[in-house]
Write a protein that binds this DNA or RNA. Structure first.
Lengths: 205, 205, 205, 205
DNA sequence: GATGAATGAGATTTCATTCAT
DNA sequence: AATGAATGAAATCTCATTCAT
């Protein structure tokens, strides 16, 4: 597939992948445009053929990888499973991305999600929250999730928990073997969906 | 003699407070050292009397404000209340800090906590997690918190939820009236401690 | 392609030449990088394309001009003439360089040769001494120079004399017309080779 | 003597001595005023009680140590010995100063004599040359030194030889045991006075 | 005399971006 | 498409010097 249209968007992909590695290694601010080009094996002037600026590279990294993630989350959301199971799947997708592509997660967690430069303008993040929120709302509608809590805030709690775990791995504060990741997934889901369970709502009379 | 007139001689404090305002307004990277000095009303050379570099200013802002926070959390932890109530109080302290000092929270959330340059070296953050983790462990010991989940991971979930809510306010994604803050507090606590409640562990009959 | 128009593309040379003029005019420390660029007619950022720092510019000025000088001295050394005549030629080359390129000599004498920062690392200077020393040793071998004096120290005496005369001109302490230069050359040579002459060793009857 | 007027020029001397050590260690430009004060064990503001500027410290170091040297040279010049012996004594005084006070010589050789900042205004150096020149002229008058060479240039040759040897020691290029120093002294004197000897002048008819 | 907080001119260097080739 | 020389705004930091105490 990468070989089908040779000589077209080829270098763009090369640059984007190189950027992820470089951003992961040095951080966005310390990374120079020249570093990215060098990592990609092209002249740095070429970067400006494909991107308007260094920031746009970061934005593209984000958008084009996050897009896939949202897609996955959306497809979970649109599935038939009960909302609690959907939340579990979303947690699984997000948390397992750490082992699948640590560089990317590092960049996303450290440079994008809260970074201030981009965070403000990133509709995609908002969309993620929205997707989760919708799962929660569906759960509230079908009775699988308690209705006395704000769905939006709940989505923040859920997403925040996941984000913090990813950060823990990124910063090396938390062990991250396959087992650890599985345990983390279970923990988030247990805590969050457990707490959202309707039978717990008003604490029995 | 240096201590006689305390409202005037403590330029270091002046600079630190100014830095918080400037970092909050423009972000750490966009803030120039000169901006901080101007905001503090002193010559910028003076900043280098008290701090080795711009980064050390940020580090100091963090350490000297976070320290107070940890103190408060610690004192909650050392109190007599049941662990779930302690968690509630911690959530309260952290979430209400947004209304109390938005500039500071903005800087902490956006520039320090996950910033990559500083986040890695900040023992204080680790200490916060540890304090929460201990509350959880105490709860597991006294039976008020279920024991089948890892206390450390639980502390990440708890802290992450709070962090994300703060971020939501900082980025203007979430409403933040006093009522909103109270509701958020209740939501986190309900979700997290609810999920941690032992009566839920085995899913009731 | 880069070599096609040689009178325009060699900005590096341009900068080096400009640096010599500026260093000569204001001294290394007082010369700003911007002065050099302005003198060269390029943006000062370009200087950092070719040199790592202002100091490296000075180092390059030195190395690339001194190299030529050493070459000349070496070729004298490798000639057939008797050593005393070789010393005369070396003195001639060094002393006449003042009239040929006063700016360069000024920089070399004032900023490099003994400057402390650079002097220590400059192998080229050591090489000059070595070349002179070899001439002396050859003279000692063929009987044209007395053997009771250390060739190395003799090379220092010889070179020091020349260096001091150049300094005298550079600092305007000594007249430097063509005649003066010729007289200085004769004086050094007469004094030094005269004193080195073997017929003088035992003080004649 | 230092104890006679205690509390008067005491600190000034302290600062001057400290300055020599610091300049020797880091060079004039790299030495900060604070370094000097710290080395002297006083607050750096005090330096400005005694000296108008950092440069004046260097100038004072120079003047007040060179003055003594010139004095000695002058007293040699005014003695009864034959001029060649006087030159020997001058060489002895200058060369032996290296072992006596290496820091001072290092500063003088590296920072003052040719440094450009001070060299130009240093009448004392000119006075040294003049003293040597007068010895040469006296020698020419009493027949102990050949008259066909310019006395002024000869004094440069003589002084330059000595200066270069000192530089060799300062930069660690030349061995400098007591024996080495003695040998250097002999070499300079032999070469220079030998070459100046009248019986060598026109090479006997 | 002594101190050191305060000042601020000034210099180097970095690096994103442009653009001629 | 591809290159990398050229640009220059911008920002940090240094440090000699002043001066109130």
């Amino acid at each position: 597939m990468r070989e089908r249209t040779n000589g077209q968007g080829d270098k763009r992909r090369l640059l984007l992948d190189a950027a992820v590695r470089v951003f992961a290694r040095k951080g966005y601010h310390s990374a120079r445009v020249g570093d990215i080009a060098e990592e990609a094996g092209v002249a740095y002037g070429l970067l400006y053929h494909y991107f308007a600026s260094k920031e746009e590279v970061l934005r593209s990294v984000f958008r084009e990888t996050w897009r896939a993630l949202i897609q996955t989350i959306k497809s979970v959301e649109e599935g038939d499973e009960p909302p609690p199971e959907q939340l579990r799947k979303v947690a699984e997708i997000l948390l397992r991305s750490w082992r699948r592509d640590p560089d990317l997660v590092r960049v996303l967690v450290l440079e994008v999600t809260r970074s201030g430069h981009l965070a403000g303008e990133m509709d995609e993040i908002v969309a993620s929250f929205a997707a989760i929120q919708e799962i929660v709302e569906r759960g509230q509608a079908d009775g699988s999730i308690r209705t006395d809590l704000d769905a939006r805030l709940a989505s923040y709690v859920f997403y925040g928990a996941i984000d913090e775990l990813l950060t823990g791995w990124v910063l090396g504060r938390l062990p991250d073997s396959d087992d650890d990741v599985a345990r983390a997934e279970r923990t988030v889901v247990e805590i969050v969906t457990g707490g959202l369970a309707p039978e717990h709502a008003g604490t029995p009379a």
